[in-house]
């Protein structure tokens, strides 16, 4: 469905991605793990068209998308929840959600769509007239995911949804990601530093090191991999 082949992205002269190959198939949850600075967020921004790939191809259902504008990529059904959530803090929760519905036929099915988001994250319904900036980190993450869902994406790109969030809420958010995948049939491409959670959730997973994919396999395989345990799951086996 989403096919990334040999993608290289640069920031000026600095090369952030050194030929990345990743496939995401319809209906899957695919995780990408890696340390800080490995190029995970760069890859998502390249898929979304914010960063341009200097070399390589990205295709979505066979269509080339690597040089399109970000808003056209959203039109195709690829929506990203970026790192740090990037809620519009001065707009209300409902306004944030309405913005998510902007491409979705100008919010034609707005009422039913927003109800689905409120069913998934009931706390947002209680807070709908509050400004986005007043929500807690976890609530903001829910809002960011809900906002992306309003565009009715086929593929959801999630960048570090667990970052800076209370552990209790992390579990809830991961549960809802699974729910979005299974119930709503949205393909998920998840980028995480929380490797254990990301691998447990994933059908398949990739490891990104210094802008290159080094290991790939099913989520379970990677969880058992000795190198990965040493590098990314230290102490993670305790619980």
């Amino acid at each position: 469905m989403l096919k990334i082949s040999n993608v290289e992205t640069f920031y000026g002269k600095i090369q952030a991605l050194r030929g990345v190959d990743i496939d995401v198939n319809d209906g899957e949850i695919v995780s990408l793990i890696g340390s800080n600075g490995a190029g995970k967020s760069t890859l998502l921004m390249t898929i979304s068209g914010v960063n341009k790939a200097r070399n390589g191809n990205i295709t979505f259902n066979g269509e080339k998308i690597e040089n399109r504008d970000p808003h056209k990529i959203v039109d195709l059904g690829i929506c990203q929840v970026p790192e740090g959530r990037r809620i519009f803090s001065r707009l209300t929760v409902e306004e944030n959600l309405r913005l998510g519905a902007y491409t979705n036929e100008q919010g034609k099915h707005f009422e039913t769509d927003i109800k689905e988001v409120y069913d998934l994250f009931p706390v947002l319904s209680d807070r709908k007239t509050q400004r986005g900036g007043t929500l807690s980190g976890g609530e903001q993450q829910m809002l960011a995911i809900g906002r992306a869902l309003m565009s009715k994406p086929k593929v959801l790109l999630l960048d570090e949804p667990s970052l800076g969030i209370a552990p209790k809420l992390v579990n809830q958010i991961f549960a809802s990601i699974k729910n979005i995948n299974k119930e709503k049939n949205v393909t998920i491409f998840l980028v995480e530093q929380n490797a254990k959670k990301a691998l447990e959730l994933a059908d398949r997973a990739y490891v990104l090191v210094n802008g290159k994919v080094t290991i790939m396999g099913s989520g379970q395989e990677l969880l058992k991999n000795k190198d990965i345990q040493a590098a990314y799951l230290e102490g993670g086996t305790k619980n």
């Binding site: 914010v50 808003h71 990037r86 519009f88 803090s89 906002r147």
Partner: peptide, 14 residues
Amino acid sequence: RACEQDRTMTALLG
């Protein structure tokens, strides 16, 4: 108003 706050995020919403 969204563009005023974060243009990249606004583009990411289509």
